[in-house]
Simulated assay, not measured.
Amino acid sequence: MTTTAMLRAFCDAVEQRNGRAFADLFTDDGVYHDVFYGAFAGRDKIAAMVDDWFYRTAMDFRWDMHDPVSNGTTLYARYTFSYTSTLPEANGSRAMFEGVAIMTLRDGKIVNYHEVANTAPAFVDLKFAPERIAKIVGKQGAELKARPEMKRHRA
């Protein structure tokens, strides 16, 4: 499967609430590190993340990957991601954010998926109170700083 085809299958599976198809893009021991929900290890948990976690408070997903770059073992792609929130305080608002997907590949499958995303605009779109946004964004920043693989990039 080409990189473009894999990324389209990746996005389509989320948009179609097809966790099994999404999980099949990963190795048996694959891990998806979600910017909101944390790590999901193994295909069963990755499938449940899409089918249960993503759709628990959202619908009408749209995910597009842009400008992928890969050396065969690492894949980077910018993305835009949006959804309609089903949270009561969002009143059906649509949220959108941008990020970068970072994937480690083995034998054409995803071993690890990480992302770096600017999620604050999505929370504003959802009409979250400023105090709630600060708490969520602060927690994400602390988690990012705690990740061992990020320490080598700090000056």
Rank of each mutant, 00 (worst) to 15 (best):
H153P: 13
R62H: 05
Y37V: 11
W53R: 15
A146D: 06
D52G: 12
R8N: 11
N71H: 00
D125I: 05
R8S: 12
E98N: 15
D51V: 09
K139F: 03
A90D: 03
R8W: 08
R8V: 11
Y55C: 04
R20K: 04
F54L: 15
A9S: 14
G138K: 04
A117K: 00
T86R: 00
A9Q: 04
E143F: 04
D107L: 04
V69F: 08
V35C: 07
F22L: 15
Y76H: 01
K145Y: 07
S82Q: 13
F97L: 14
R154N: 13
E143R: 03
N18T: 07
G141E: 14
K135F: 03
V69W: 04
A146V: 03
R20A: 12
D28V: 15
N91H: 14
E115M: 02
V100Y: 04
W53A: 15
R154P: 12
A95M: 04
A48D: 10
Y79N: 00
N18F: 12
P68M: 09
R152H: 14
M6F: 14
R20C: 02
F97N: 08
A9L: 05
L105S: 00
S82C: 11
M103N: 14
A120Y: 01
F128A: 07
L105M: 01
G38Q: 03
T27F: 13
R56D: 12
F22T: 07
F40R: 04
A9V: 08
L126Q: 10
D12C: 07
K139W: 08
S93C: 13
F36T: 03
P68V: 05
M49Q: 12
G72D: 02
R94A: 09
A9R: 06
R43E: 12
N71L: 02
T3E: 03
T73V: 09
L7K: 02
E15P: 00
T3F: 01
M49K: 15
T119Y: 02
H66L: 10
V31R: 06
P148I: 08
G141K: 09
N91W: 15
Y79D: 06
L126W: 00
D34M: 05
M96N: 14
A58G: 06
Y32P: 11
A41S: 09
V124I: 10
G30H: 07
R17E: 09
A90K: 11
R94Q: 11
A129M: 13
Q16Y: 01
T57G: 15
I133G: 07
A5C: 10
M65D: 12
G92A: 13
K135P: 08
M150A: 00
A101V: 02
F97S: 11
Y37H: 12
I110N: 00
F10I: 09
R94V: 02
T74G: 06
D125Q: 02
H66E: 00
E143G: 01
D107H: 02
F128V: 01
Y37F: 13
R78E: 13
T74H: 07
A120F: 09
D60K: 15
F10K: 07
A48S: 10
K45H: 04
G30Y: 04
G138T: 05
Y37L: 09
V100M: 01
D24S: 09
T3K: 03
P88G: 09
T74L: 01
C11H: 10
F22N: 07
F40S: 11
Y79G: 02
T3V: 06
F97Q: 08
A77P: 03
D28E: 15
